[in-house]
Amino acid sequence: MRSRPRKSARMKIDTDRINNLLSKLQQLVPELHSRRSCTNEALTSKVLQDTCDYIRYLQREVHDLSDQLLQLLDTADIDANQAAIIRHLIA
């Protein structure tokens, strides 16, 4: 009958870990920074959804900035080898 306490202890650790990670996400994502810690499933879902939205936003920003850099490389007067290296790094 020792399996029940271990299972609940494992569940408690997992819940604590999840809550800790959600708290860290709230600190990292600007839209979530001002919210209080998650205490229920609805708030947890909102934190995860907002985090996914923020990651998508950052990916778009990286893509847009990479495009702008490539356009600048096309018009800049730099060595072809340097331009090739930069293109390779952002591809």
Rank of each mutant, 00 (worst) to 15 (best):
I85N: 04
P30T: 15
L70W: 09
H63R: 03
I90S: 08
L48V: 09
K12E: 01
D74L: 07
I18N: 12
Q68A: 09
A83P: 03
I55W: 12
P30F: 11
S8H: 02
Q71L: 08
L72Y: 10
R60T: 11
N20D: 14
R6I: 08
L25Y: 12
D67S: 07
D64P: 11
Q49I: 15
N40W: 05
Q26I: 06
E41G: 13
A76N: 04
N19D: 11
T15A: 05
Y57F: 15
L43G: 07
L72F: 12
D53P: 00
C52S: 06
K7M: 14
T39C: 05
I55F: 07
D50I: 08
L28D: 05
R17V: 14
L25M: 14
K46G: 01
R87H: 10
D64R: 08
N19I: 04
T51A: 13
D16M: 05
D77S: 09
L65A: 10
Y54W: 14
K24C: 08
D14S: 11
L72A: 08
A42T: 12
L25V: 11
I90F: 04
R2N: 12
D74C: 03
D14M: 05
R17I: 15
C38G: 06
T44M: 07
A42C: 13
M1D: 14
R2L: 13
P5E: 06
S8P: 00
R17C: 13
S23H: 10
S37Y: 15
C38R: 00
S37H: 15
S45G: 13
R35L: 15
D77R: 00
Y54T: 03
Q26P: 01
A80R: 03
Q49G: 09
R36Y: 05
L65D: 02
N19V: 01
H88A: 11
L21W: 02
T39K: 14
Q27F: 07
Q82M: 13
L73D: 08
D50P: 00
T75Q: 04
R10V: 15
H33S: 10
A76D: 09
D67P: 03
R87D: 01
Y57D: 06
S23T: 11
N19A: 05
Q49S: 14
I90K: 00
D64G: 10
T44A: 08
A91W: 04
H63D: 02
R36F: 09
K12C: 00
Y57W: 12
Q49D: 11
T51L: 11
Q68D: 04
R60P: 00
A91I: 07
Q68L: 03
K7N: 12
K7V: 06
E61C: 06
Y54A: 12
S3Y: 15
S8R: 09
A80G: 04
L48S: 07
P5I: 03
K7A: 12
R6Y: 11
C52Q: 06
D53N: 10
